[in-house]
């Protein structure tokens, strides 16, 4: 656990919020919310701390698509989940030069969601054929699109009750 605290301190400087999560329930240790422009700083810290890249992906939620990054470690039990939202142009900086393994993951995310990875060395279609480049097959229809809050892990029950109680009195 101490090692997770170390990395928590390190990413604190570049993150909006760092939340330790219950591994037994969610399968990873640290949730890191990032500003769009700090993704590369985060990746550099992950690299310097010896983490390897798990995957990069996106999830289509309202109001903006979220890009998610998972890292894990060869020598210690620590799995870190970072996420950010795309900017107004639907873009996020690439981390493919820091983790070359992210290259294909980013190209795939570009194929499936249309997310543009700024600075990517070769943002050509990876999976989709050239004629279907703008298919974006994993985008949700308007009917199915959910708010980012609807897919968040709910706050612990106790906290919810105490927060709700005073509001009800008013």
């Amino acid at each position: 656990m101490r090692q997770t605290e170390d990395v928590q301190r390190a990413v604190q400087a570049v993150a909006v919020a760092v939340t330790p999560v219950e591994y037994g329930q969610r399968g990873y240790h640290l949730l890191v919310e990032l500003e769009n422009g700090r993704v590369r700083d985060f990746a550099r810290i992950m690299h310097d701390q010896g983490y390897f890249i798990g995957f990069v992906t996106a999830v289509h939620v309202a109001p903006a698509i979220e890009v998610r990054y998972q890292f894990a470690h060869f020598d210690r039990q620590s799995r870190v989940m970072g996420f950010t939202t795309v900017d107004a142009a639907g873009a996020v900086p690439t981390i493919a030069d820091i983790f070359p393994g992210a290259n294909w993951h980013e190209r795939e995310t570009r194929d499936f969601y249309g997310v543009v990875f700024t600075g990517h060395p070769n943002l050509e279609p990876l999976i989709l054929p050239e004629e279907d480049v703008d298919l974006k097959p994993l985008l949700k229809s308007e009917k199915n699109l959910k708010d980012a809050a609807a897919v968040r892990w709910p706050e612990p029950k106790v906290a919810e009750d105490t927060a709700a109680a005073p509001a009800a009195k008013e």
Binding site: H47, Y51, F52, I53, G54, F74, F99
Partner: peptide, 15 residues
Amino acid sequence: DKDMCQRYGATGPVA
């Protein structure tokens, strides 16, 4: 080498 595994996320018997 290990560095390459880390950068690419290579795991399993490769790592």
